[in-house]
Design a protein around this nucleic acid. Structure first.
Length: 821
RNA sequence: GCCGAGGUGGCGGAAUCGGCAGACGCGAGGGACUUAAAAUCCCUUCCCCGAAGCGGGGGUGCGGGUUCGAGCCCCGCCCUCGGCACCA
């Protein structure tokens, strides 16, 4: 090709240049008055840990590419960025290094913002949101007050998860694996504490409705399982006197098989029902159970434990007296904290009965059962026996029949139970939004009036390694006056879970500087809800669930008018190193910076998308990035050469190898492929298609002849298709080839159906399912023609001579298969 | 234990309305250019047989099955990853 080209592709030079130019021209500022439909594409904002690693870019680059694609498709795209800036690591840094959490956090943000800018995304930085600034957390507190007014925030004493290392409580959702702290993996212990909760359980049923959102099945299933709905019956068992024990069961059909009752050790009736001679043993057991660590308690291999408390309950259906036990396999926090034990038909009850030699009464006969003892609980359906008037019924029918009977007799009623617990939002830490409440000796619990918000974090708090909340000992903070009576009062010293901050940040982006309210209602109406959300699946039962609850609560208060925050969700996979997650503490972190400095952001962006399907994640192996760099260099040379006068003269010369028609076909086929892949987030095959296109154009450029307009269409198309992925390179080449700035304001190419359509295909000829020949044929070939052609081929004939043709299978546009016997 | 996703060359991965397995890229081998190296370009690269072929055979975790035809569907296993885990 041309000898004249001297300019080399130099991303180090062109990337900063265009980033500055775009910023200067406010290319990516978005406004509500644009004449296009809006598109809100959001990626989960990063926690301000210090450095962005390649995993962050893996989340952000493809999301930016898709947002840019939508922008070129004509949408008014909001694709903002901000920082999740409250949280424990800032405080730990303060303790260990004497830096104030604010200083630490803002320093990190500074560094991360720089890294993010080098990515070359279309973030409108005027809309940046930082959750730790008073302008923001003022509204976090405001939302708390709204939830409080609505009766959705309450304070209660409860056994809660306590992380001894973080010195704070954790929400259920933040306890992972075998009872470990989500952040530091320390085993969690139980503590009885007064804490603030949000009543997410009120929305359990609605949270199970995913009909208005397009989310991955996997995430919906995780939320479903987390909410854990089960339908059953709550049934009263009689006690001496007026009292009753209520149990929850999903198997009312087994009620004739109840041989004992088990209460959770913390059950309120235990105290009253324990008889004098069992008191000591019961107390000992409760104490023992309380001391069990979460890990011990959760172990399924552990032998059942429990004690008899001396009292009996009456099965109202049979009139039988059954003993009442306590055991820690029954949880106070689920159902009623009491179960009717049916050892014959529940494995846990079975093990318990075996261990303590309690009767096992079969009421659902297994198939072919003739009265012998069971080796394990029979939990499947069967025929009802030993069940009075219900004998002989299939147990599935018995379920309803018995429930109807129980309801008719007033012994109990149908009930739904959920595994989901209320969201524990108190944290005994400094670096979070203070809960805006005051304790007054005279007035009790008093919310801080809206006009007094924000309740500011004191700057003079001391960070000591004792582990206790610095706020607790900060007098300037704790001492307050009661908003109601002006008397001396104490401020609440708990701060809010940071998931509270992230439950509304996506709404703040709509009007980030707004002073009168958390958002400007008109702008919110324009932008929300988020059309496309992307982020990690690890938030399935945390951020993603909390936020759905939050929006539903706000909707019911009339603050927002939509039901779901995020219409479409896509979860990218995890980038790993040596099959393990990146982790700062283990020194397994790759930052993008060195790669950006060496190969350019465009190459890193493209490589991250090329590794594999976005939702599958993958191994970071920097050897592969070379292939991308080579490709971008080839694009550079190809495009610049293409606009060289001599080159144009050369391709315009007629030759035997004229390819204009094929070139246009391939150009339009590529547009189709790239567009469809982009829409489906299949970035790896999109890049492969662009590479193939580049390779093809390179071949055409070597001595073949083509009409210049077709050639320029192809080259321009390549640049436009590449623009979302490699925005700097595309812009540079677009400008250098004399096109008007900016390529990012151009429309994404549209394919011509006729040109993209195939005219021929490779007909595969098989004999007995084995490939024997292939031949290019026109798409219009008929079945008869194809069969005839197949039979006539030299290569097939050899395989036909020894047998008789039994049938011929023809698959249009694919193959002919000759079956020979 | 239960639920979900997955297992394809030396590596990352393509191909799923059941129809050419291995696109694209990395790595490797060979060649061109160069005093040399880097860069770049060209060729080869699933395995076995064959001097070679646009020749034969085998091949998508394992074992069976359905089908003219199976990476894809069915049955039974094994392994990896993620989630849940005494939830009555």
């Amino acid at each position: 090709m041309s000898e004249k080209r001297v300019v080399k592709y130099n991303p180090q030079e062109i990337e900063p240049k265009w980033q500055e130019r775009w910023a200067q021209d406010r290319l990516y500022e978005v406004h509500e008055d644009a004449p296009h439909p809006k598109w809100y594409e959001l990626t989960m904002f990063p926690y301000t840990s210090g450095d962005l690693h390649i995993g962050h870019w893996y989340a952000m680059a493809p999301s930016d590419v898709h947002a840019r694609f939508m922008r070129m498709k004509g949408y008014n795209v909001l694709h903002p960025m901000g920082f999740d800036a409250f949280g424990l690591p800032a405080e730990n840094a303060a303790i260990s290094r004497g830096i104030h959490p604010f200083t630490w956090t803002m320093g990190n943000i500074e560094r991360m913002r720089g890294q993010l800018k080098s990515l070359g995304a279309i973030y409108d930085w005027n809309r940046e949101v930082e959750t730790c600034l008073p302008d923001y957390y003022k509204w976090t507190q405001w939302f708390f007050l709204k939830l409080y007014e609505a009766g959705l925030a309450y304070r209660a004493k409860a056994p809660v998860n306590w992380c001894p290392k973080c010195q704070t409580v954790l929400a259920n959702e933040q306890v992972v694996g075998e009872g470990l702290c989500e952040r530091c993996e320390t085993p969690v212990t139980r503590k009885d504490l007064e804490q603030w909760f949000f009543r997410i359980t009120k929305y359990a049923e609605e949270l199970l409705d995913f009909s208005h959102i397009e989310w991955p099945e996997r995430i919906k299933t995780m939320q479903k399982n987390w909410i854990g709905k089960s339908e059953g019956v709550e049934i009263a068992f009689g006690l001496e006197g007026e009292e009753e024990i209520r149990v929850f069961t999903t198997r009312p059909d087994t009620i004739y098989g109840v041989t004992f009752i088990v209460l959770a050790p913390e059950h309120p009736l235990v105290e009253r029902l324990t008889t004098a001679e069992h008191r000591e043993e019961v107390a000992r057991y409760i104490e023992w159970a309380r001391r069990q660590s979460e890990i011990e308690r959760l172990s399924t291999e552990r032998e059942k434990s429990g004690v008899f408390i001396g009292s009996y309950a009456i099965n109202k259906l049979t009139g039988e007296r059954v003993p009442i036990w306590i055991a820690d396999y029954v949880l106070m926090s689920y159902g009623t904290g009491a179960v009717m034990a049916v050892p014959a038909h529940d494995q846990r009850d079975f093990e318990f009965a075996k261990r303590f030699v309690l009767p096992i009464k079969v009421v659902i006969a297994p198939p072919d059962w003739s009265g012998e003892d069971l080796a394990e609980a029979y939990i499947k359906p069967g025929t009802m026996v030993n069940s009075a008037q219900f004998d002989g019924l299939p147990s599935e029918q018995g379920m309803d029949a018995i429930t109807d009977f129980i309801e008719a007799m007033g012994y109990g009623e149908r009930k739904k139970t959920y595994r989901l617990r209320d969201w524990l939002i108190s944290r005994q830490r400094y670096w979070g939004a203070p809960i805006p409440m005051v304790y007054c000796d005279r007035c009790g619990l008093v919310p801080v009036p809206e006009k007094d918000l924000p309740v500011l974090l004191p700057e003079d708090a001391e960070f000591r390694p004792t582990g206790e909340s610095p706020l607790k000992y900060c007098e300037s903070f704790v001492n307050a006056t009661c908003p109601k009576c002006d008397a001396m009062a104490r401020r609440e010293t708990d701060t809010m879970d940071t998931f509270m901050c992230s439950s509304w940040y996506f709404m703040r982006y709509a009007s980030p500087g707004y002073k009168e309210a958390p958002f400007d209602v008109e702008k919110l109406k324009y932008w929300l809800p988020v059309d496309q959300y992307t982020g990690g699946a690890e938030h399935a039962t945390m951020h993603l669930l909390y936020t759905r609850f939050f929006i539903k609560a706000l909707r019911d208060m009339g603050i927002v008018d939509f039901d779901e925050p995020f219409i479409r969700l896509f979860n990218q996979g995890v980038i790993v190193i040596e099959r393990q997650k990146m982790s700062k503490s283990r020194g397994r972190v790759i930052t993008p910076d060195a790669y950006v400095a060496e190969m350019g952001a465009d190459a890193v962006r493209a490589y991250l998308m090329f590794i594999g399907p976005w939702d599958q994640g993958g191994e970071w192996d920097d050897r592969g990035i070379k292939g991308i760099a080579r490709w971008l260099n080839r694009v550079w040379s190809l495009v610049l050469d293409s606009y060289d006068a001599e080159f144009l003269k050369a391709i315009a010369k007629p030759s035997k190898e004229a390819v204009t028609k094929t070139l246009r076909h391939i150009t339009h086929r590529t547009i189709k492929k790239v567009t469809e892949d982009m829409e489906r987030f299949r970035f790896n095959t999109m890049i492969a298609a662009l590479m193939e296109f580049t390779n093809y154009l390179g071949k055409v450029g070597e001595g073949k002849s083509v009409e210049p307009p077709a050639w320029q269409e192809a080259i321009d198309t390549l640049l436009l298709l590449l623009a979302p992925t490699a925005p700097h390179l595309a812009e540079e080449l677009w400008t250098r080839t004399g096109h008007p700035y900016s390529i990012h304001n151009q429309a994404f190419p549209k394919w011509d159906k006729g040109l993209a359509a195939e005219e021929e295909f490779t007909l595969v000829i098989q004999v007995n399912g084995r490939l024997r020949d292939r031949v290019r044929v026109p798409i219009s070939i008929t079945e008869e023609e194809a069969k005839e052609l197949a039979l006539g081929r030299e290569r097939t004939k050899a395989y036909l001579k020894d047998g008789e043709i039994a049938r011929i299978i023809y698959v249009p546009r694919r193959l002919v298969n000759i079956v020979v016997k």
